[in-house]
Design a protein around this nucleic acid. Structure first.
Length: 147
DNA sequence: GCCAACGTTGGC
DNA sequence: GCCAACGTTGGC
């Protein structure tokens, strides 16, 4: 899961100990569908800092609550407000995540150096999705890398 | 700040 | 349903 560190960083997540944080503000249907359809409680999350220098993986989290309507879509003063969404038929959903640990930075450059990771969705050319799936093999490999 | 890649909108 | 115009993401 990508996040811009000046908006919500791994430290911000760490500072909510024991708490479940809503991964809100996702306004892309593909990313929403990953949360809504595929992410289950207990699934591991790689926390990725994007739009910064250097971008890369900075920690791990875990899915702690399955997808439910994103409250920010109803909040008129929120940047994420969606006037077309209603409580009856909400358009946007988010999972809840919990902090697990920080890792030494694994930069985008470094990720690209590992042949084992070359098919990672997030590394594909033009990939802009803020949420992308990770295979069990990729997950294990990165856990090993960052241990 | 640039710009490639992708997503969304809306006229037709 | 097509597609031009526009908006966003995010690496560099």
């Amino acid at each position: 899961m990508k996040s811009e560190p000046n908006v919500f960083s791994i430290d911000d997540l760490r500072n909510c100990p024991g708490q479940i944080e809503p991964w809100n503000g996702v306004r892309n249907y593909q990313a929403r569908n990953f949360m809504k359809n595929d992410m289950k409680v207990g699934d591991g999350v790689l926390f990725y800092h994007s739009n910064c220098s250097p971008p890369g993986i900075v920690g791990c989290a875990v899915v702690a609550r399955e997808a439910y309507p994103d409250e920010s879509q109803f909040d008129k003063v929120s940047d994420y407000f969606d006037p077309k969404s209603t409580k009856e038929t909400p358009r946007w959903f988010n999972v809840g995540v919990k902090f697990v640990r920080k890792t030494p930075l694994i930069s985008l450059n470094e990720l690209r150096e590992h042949k084992e990771l070359e098919s990672m969705r997030v590394l594909q050319k033009g990939s802009r999705l803020s949420i992308t799936p990770v295979t069990p093999e990729e997950w294990s490999y990165i856990q090993e890398l960052s241990s």
